[in-house]
Simulated scan of single mutants.
Amino acid sequence: MIVPDSPSTAAGVAVHYDELDLAYRRIWGEHVHHGYWRTGRESPAEAAEALVAQVEARLAPEPGQTLCDIGCGYGATAARIIARHDVHILGLTLSAAQENVAKARALFRFTCLRRDWLHNELPDAGFDGAYAIESSEHMVDKTRFFTEAARILRPGGRLVVCAWLEGEGARPWEVRHLLHPICREGRLPSMGSRADYQALAAEAGFVLRDYEDASVRVRRTWTICLRRLVLAMIHDPMLRSLAFNPRTRSRDFILSLPRLILALRTGAMRYGIFLWEKGADQRSVPSLENPSNAPASSAATGR
């Protein structure tokens, strides 16, 4: 487990996303997560939708189910799933800016709450499935991240997690110059490995049903973001002001873009997609033998 010298807090994560709200939306769009390229010909918007499709395929929502979006961002993933399935989704975010955008969608069957997942106050066994797309990294207590997911899920419920992971065998210089700074600049209290996640999930009572290392499929995200950022600094005075304003506490994240490109290229950082099932009174879950063939949508609506 990678733990930076100055680990972030939930309040620090909220500040990060509130301060950089303009940058995230103008540079990448309504999805606060990587894109997933299957062919390499997808546009960034299509790739972002394709990652959601990967999560959706693993959740396999059924009519009438209730799902929990752990770290719902702007609510775009929930919008896509609700548009395709007769389900209810409750989303949680730490960010006031994200909450405002998500609530402005006024989606039927979607509720967004500004609440810390580690203190979520949700009912026991109240959800049929849950997903966390690049939010577990921001959790101060990763053990509790999994125990809370197990608590709120019904027996047999599915948990899908997309996560930035410490690469196995990361070299000392990669840890020192890539992973530690990425955690610090990205407001990640820690970065676990695949083995860390699997052990913590097992301790919480989850059974691993599928894992995909999607590092190669997602890594183009940061090259695109860096290129767009450079252009924005030239042409967008609002983003330029945000980046150079000394009062912007999260502006150091700009430094992480080249680090992320290098970390994913060298394997120091990996990107994993997990599918777990709550172990007690399990229901049968079909195996995704070839998860890369899960359906992907090129639609630009929803998250």
Rank of each mutant, 00 (worst) to 15 (best):
M1A: 13
S6A: 10
P7N: 10
A10S: 14
A10R: 12
A11L: 13
G12L: 07
V13S: 09
V15T: 14
L20N: 00
Y24H: 03
R26D: 00
H34Q: 14
G35Q: 06
Y36A: 06
W37G: 00
W37K: 08
W37E: 01
T39P: 12
G40F: 07
E42K: 06
A45E: 15
E46P: 01
E49I: 08
E49K: 14
A50L: 10
A53L: 02
Q54H: 10
V55K: 01
A57L: 06
E62C: 09
E62F: 04
P63W: 05
C68Y: 06
I70E: 04
A76I: 02
R80H: 12
D86L: 02
L94K: 01
L94R: 08
S95M: 01
V101R: 10
V101M: 00
A102H: 05
A104T: 05
L113W: 09
R114Q: 11
R115E: 12
D116N: 15
D116C: 12
W117S: 02
W117F: 08
N120G: 01
L122H: 10
P123N: 05
G126I: 08
S136Y: 04
M139T: 10
F145E: 01
F145R: 06
F145C: 04
R154N: 00
G156F: 00
L165S: 14
L165A: 15
L165V: 13
G167E: 14
G169S: 08
P172D: 03
P172Q: 08
P172T: 04
W173T: 11
G186Y: 00
G186V: 02
R187P: 04
M191D: 03
R194E: 13
V207Y: 12
L208N: 12
R209N: 15
V218N: 07
R219L: 04
R220Y: 02
R227L: 08
L229S: 13
H235E: 13
M238T: 09
R251P: 07
F253K: 04
P258W: 03
I261F: 10
G267K: 13
M269W: 07
M269D: 04
F274Y: 13
L275F: 02
K278F: 01
V285Q: 00
L288C: 09
N290R: 15
S292Q: 07
N293H: 15
A294R: 11
S298A: 15
S298C: 13
A299T: 15
T301V: 14
T301C: 14
